[in-house]
């Protein structure tokens, strides 16, 4: 099928992009990689009047190091993520999760920022960003603001992004194996291409046989990505063992409100969250 007609703008800078969005009226869609937006437009579930295409905004693409943070441009593609040496060293959790996103062709076009701004709770990357306490740099007519991941995701397909604003960068804390961090993205779906029924993004820091810190993000366990806070808390200071991990993982579904849909009912998702959290933690902790 063919999208409904739309006007098209292809800015080359963030400034131009913001201007194009501002000039575009009420019905503007921002095209990042287009791998979710174009199918939705083809099915005519979306029919914007103006599409602002960010693919030529070079400043939004790439990864750089700033102190103890990595700064990832919103238009960095999934394929870029998989081949980036900094991310390989300091953001293995993101790399692992990105490997599971869709397929190689889609990963060539789809972008990190696009996936986050789309805020599909079944998407793999929001939970990773949340688990890592990423910071989201948003540009708008009034300048830039930075929002922590915990505040970025508001509801199903909804973020704090206001009309006229753009997600421009994502700042990730460095999580390195050398500092005792182990990570695992544990994804559960029915076929390779399908969205996650549930997935768990886990990062665990170990020191002298004990867990000092755990960060766990849950994919598709509510209208937004969630943290498994009770499990995280239960892990701090415990010995690294299958027993401690299993006990903590039993609390992974606390506070979640997953949906009932064709792929799974809520109670099954909550069960999966526990099993997958246990497996993710065990792998992350090197068990």
């Amino acid at each position: 099928m063919i999208p409904a007609a739309f006007a098209y703008s292809r800015p080359t800078t963030v400034e131009e992009a913001l201007q194009a969005i501002a000039d575009g009226g009420d019905d503007v869609k921002v095209l990042a990689g287009g791998q979710s937006l174009i199918p939705v437009m083809r099915l005519r579930l979306a029919a914007p009047e103006l599409v602002v295409d960010l693919t030529r905004v070079e400043e939004l693409r790439g990864v750089r190091e700033e102190g103890d943070q990595l700064v990832v441009g919103a238009m960095t593609t999934h394929a870029d993520v998989l081949s980036d040496p900094l991310l390989a060293q300091y953001a293995q959790l993101l790399v692992q999760a990105t490997e599971t996103v869709a397929d190689r062709q889609v990963r060539r076009r789809g972008t990190f920022g696009g996936a986050l701004a789309h805020a599909d709770p079944a998407g793999d990357l929001p939970a990773v960003a949340l688990a890592l306490d990423a910071e989201f740099v948003i540009a708008g007519p009034a300048g830039r603001r930075t929002v922590p991941a915990g505040e970025f995701f508001v509801d199903y397909l909804t973020t704090v992004l206001e009309e006229g604003e753009l997600l421009v960068e994502i700042r990730l804390p460095k999580i390195a194996a050398a500092d005792g961090w182990g990570v695992r993205y544990e994804k559960f779906n029915r076929v390779a291409q399908a969205w996650s029924i549930v997935a768990v993004a886990a990062a665990v820091r170990r020191e002298g046989g004990r867990i000092t810190e755990a960060r766990i993000g849950l994919t598709n366990m509510g209208p937004t990505p969630l943290r498994a806070s009770a499990t995280e808390a239960a892990l701090v200071g415990v010995d690294v063992s299958l027993e401690t991990v299993t006990a903590a993982a039993a609390q992974a579904a606390e506070g979640t409100s997953p949906s009932n849909d064709l792929n799974a009912q809520a109670d099954y998702r909550q069960h999966l969250a526990q099993v997958l959290t246990k497996r993710a933690l065990a792998a992350a902790a090197g068990l």
Binding site: G34, Q35, I38
Partner: peptide, 8 residues
């Protein structure tokens, strides 16, 4: 490689 149905 890209899917040409999902590129304008």
């Amino acid at each position: 490689a890209v899917k040409s149905c999902t590129v304008l």
